[in-house]
Design a protein around this nucleic acid. Structure first.
Lengths: 186, 186
DNA sequence: CGTACATATGTCGAACTCGACATAGTCGTA
DNA sequence: TACGACTATGTCGAGTTCGACATATGTACG
């Protein structure tokens, strides 16, 4: 049974075959919004997936001191991915370092607290703008995909919708908190 | 410099002294909503905090084969906590296993996908109800705290507000996703 | 009087994660 | 032509996290 990272790689390889390097790139953009991994995790994990029969590789042309390998998801990998995808995840809480800082923010001066929340708000605003741009691009490229849930495009769109909603929720909360700190300054 | 877990413990000890066991309890409820740790992490971390001068302990009466220790935050601990609290956290993405599953959900039958999202919605609804209950209790117990950001009560309330907003955002997204899968069934 | 649960602290090993080190070809630019 | 950035794959060690094992008393319930 692969680890969560293994399933993240399978979820990408089930769409299209890729090299380890390309998987690393994908860990920045679409999937990077909710999962990340460095290349030093990816390469050993690919070897583990292969020894378990979940992926298979072929050597292709490429530069560098070692073979360039393109990995593809096998039928067994696809089955394992589908089974894992519908299992309910552990209901453990998601870790949120900012909440921890907010929980301790009363120990620091209000001006510094304001600066922290303002910076967070700006970061969320920037991510929201990025998601809105992707949303427009997505609608133009896959006009029908957003209505058929059995396509990989719909699945990607569903995660984007969640991202949009999440950033708006966070911005709203930052605004509420800033209004409270504002009141206290007067 | 303590680890993030160390600061989580300091954030609790800056409010009131506690034993390792009591810290473990706190890692379930208020703080457990955004951070967790098992006792096997807490006890070694307390020893590390003490050797760094951030906390201090006194032996108190208690059962069991070993001394019962009550830890308190020192002035140095309090300073370190305040400095850490206003530092911007790394902008790395928060990991979300459910998003990963949704990203792969197109490989599974729609009925199973529906069941997964319905279960998630129910879990969020339950947490929302819990937070709403805490909100009412909080308003009754600390009527003035929610307007003064320099109190530990306000800080706890701010995290609760974020939790309420988060659960509503997730429920809204689950509803949207369910409506899409519904349409597809017909 | 036995059983189970809560109080209370600790160690150990396996797995996961992350940054640093290592290697080497290609391509654009100053 | 030299320098840096990008393609491409891998190892290593330190730190984090988690479940399992270990120990022993107080208290409530049947």
């Amino acid at each position: 049974m692969p680890s969560t990272l293994g399933f993240a790689l399978l979820a990408l390889l089930a769409r299209t075959p890729r090299t380890g390097y390309e998987l690393r790139q994908a860990m920045r953009e679409p999937i990077g919004f909710f999962w990340t991994a460095s290349h030093s995790q990816i390469y050993p994990e690919l070897a583990r997936l292969e020894s378990g029969g979940f992926v298979r590789h072929r050597v292709i042309d490429g530069p560098g001191p070692r073979d360039t390998k393109r990995y593809a998801c096998t039928a067994a990998g696809r089955r394992a991915l589908a089974a894992w995808a519908i299992e309910a995840p552990e209901p453990g809480p998601e870790r949120d370092e900012l909440m921890l800082k907010v929980y301790a923010i009363w120990t620091a001066p209000p001006a510094a607290a304001r600066a922290l929340i303002e910076a967070q708000r700006a970061a969320h605003e920037a991510r929201l703008a990025r998601y809105e741009q992707l949303d427009v691009e997505f609608g133009a490229q896959h006009p029908t995909a957003i209505v058929d849930p059995s396509t990989p495009e719909f699945a990607a769109y569903a995660t984007l919708r969640c991202g949009l909603s999440y950033e708006r929720h966070r911005i709203g909360w930052c605004d509420w908190l800033l209004s409270r700190i504002e009141v206290a300054r007067r």
